[in-house]
C-alpha cells in the first residue's frame, strides 16, 4: 500500500457524470489532485478527457456529481477559483487578429497581474518566444501558438493548471522544450497540474500519477511504473493500446480472489 498523499487536495471530483444525448461521456468519475502534483489523464479519442476538463473549469455543467477546488464547491465559487487557476489547450488560441503582446496584456489585466509588462517579458523569455511579441497571433505556427498559450496560462501564477493536450501538433523538439518548461515552472511554484495527452513520452516525463479513462470510466490509476507493472504489457504505450481496444489492462479477467 502506498502511503496516502498528505499534501493539500486542490481539486477533487466526486462521482462526476456527464451525459450527452443519453450517452455517458463521463461515468462516475472521481479523483483528487494534490498541491504540487502532476496528474495525467489518459485515454483514447473520445474517452472523456476534454469533457472532464470542461466540467472542472465550469464550462460544461455535469449531469451529476460534485467538484471542489481549493476545498470550495465549483458551482458557487467559480470566479474565485478561476482567479487561482488557468487553462491551456492545443485546440484553442488567443484572438488571431491581435498582436501577441496585445493579447497577453489584455489577459494580464483580466487576471490583475501586478506588473504585467515585466511578467509577460519574463514568461516569454522562459518559453523562448520573446521575439514574437509584435507578431500577429493568427500567423503563428502551432509550436509558437502553443507557447503563447502557455504564457497566458502562467500569467496569474496559477496554483492549479489544466492542460488539454498541450503538446498535440508539436514537433518532438518543441514538445520536449514545452515539457521541460512546464515541469520546471511546476516544480518551482509547486503547481498542481491536470494534464491530458495521447503522448506517452509526455506522460512518463511529466506526470507523477496517471488515470486511464475508457468510455468515461476509470480503468486504472497509479504511477506510470506501477501501471505497467500491474498490466500484462511491457510499456505504457502498450497499456494505452490495450485499454483503447479492450477497456482493460490485463489479458484475462483474473479471478485472484477466488477461493
Amino acid at each position: 500500500m502506498p502511503a496516502p498523499d498528505a499534501r493539500e487536495i486542490i481539486l477533487e471530483a466526486r462521482d462526476l457524470t456527464r451525459e450527452f444525448d443519453g450517452v455517458k461521456a463521463l461515468d462516475r468519475f472521481s479523483f483528487q489532485l494534490h498541491r504540487g502534483e502532476v496528474l495525467g489523464l489518459l485515454g483514447a479519442n473520445g474517452a472523456g478527457k476534454t469533457t472532464a476538463m470542461n466540467c472542472l473549469l465550469g464550462l460544461t455543467l455535469p449531469t451529476s456529481g460534485d467538484i471542489f477546488a481549493f476545498g470550495l464547491p465549483l458551482q458557487k465559487h467559480r470566479i474565485a477559483i478561476l482567479q487561482r487557476a488557468n487553462f491551456s489547450s492545443a485546440y484553442t488560441a488567443l484572438p488571431g487578429n491581435l498582436l501577441v503582446g496585445q493579447n497577453l496584456i489584455v489577459f494580464a489585466k483580466i487576471y490583475g497581474v501586478r506588473e504585467p509588462k515585466k511578467k509577460i517579458a519574463e514568461l516569454m523569455e522562459l518559453l523562448e518566444i520573446s521575439h514574437l511579441a509584435k507578431r500577429v497571433t493568427g500567423q503563428l505556427s502551432a509550436g509558437e501558438s502553443t507557447r503563447v498559450n502557455l504564457v497566458k496560462a502562467f500569467l496569474n501564477d496559477p496554483e492549479l493548471l489544466m492542460l488539454d493536450e498541450p503538446t498535440a501538433s508539436l514537433d518532438p523538439d518543441i514538445a520536449d522544450k514545452v515539457r521541460k518548461v512546464v515541469r520546471k515552472v511546476q516544480r518551482e511554484r509547486n503547481i498542481g497540474i491536470l494534464y491530458t495527452s495521447h503522448n506517452m513520452r509526455d506522460i512518463e516525463e511529466v506526470c507523477d500519477r496517471v488515470i486511464f479513462l475508457h468510455k468515461g470510466k476509470i480503468v486504472c490509476e497509479g504511477t506510470p511504473t506501477d501501471i505497467v507493472a500491474q498490466s500484462s504489457s511491457a510499456t505504457l504505450e502498450d497499456v494505452f493500446i490495450k485499454i483503447a481496444r479492450d477497456g482493460e489492462i490485463i489479458d484475462e479477467p483474473q479471478k485472484d480472489k477466488a477461493p
Binding site: L57, A85, T92, A93, P95, I110, Y111
Partner: peptide, 11 residues
C-alpha cells in the same frame, strides 16, 4: 476568434 473559452476560463 474563438476567444470565448479563454474569457470564460478567466475570472
Amino acid at each position: 476568434t474563438r476567444n470565448l473559452l479563454n474569457v470564460f476560463v478567466a475570472p
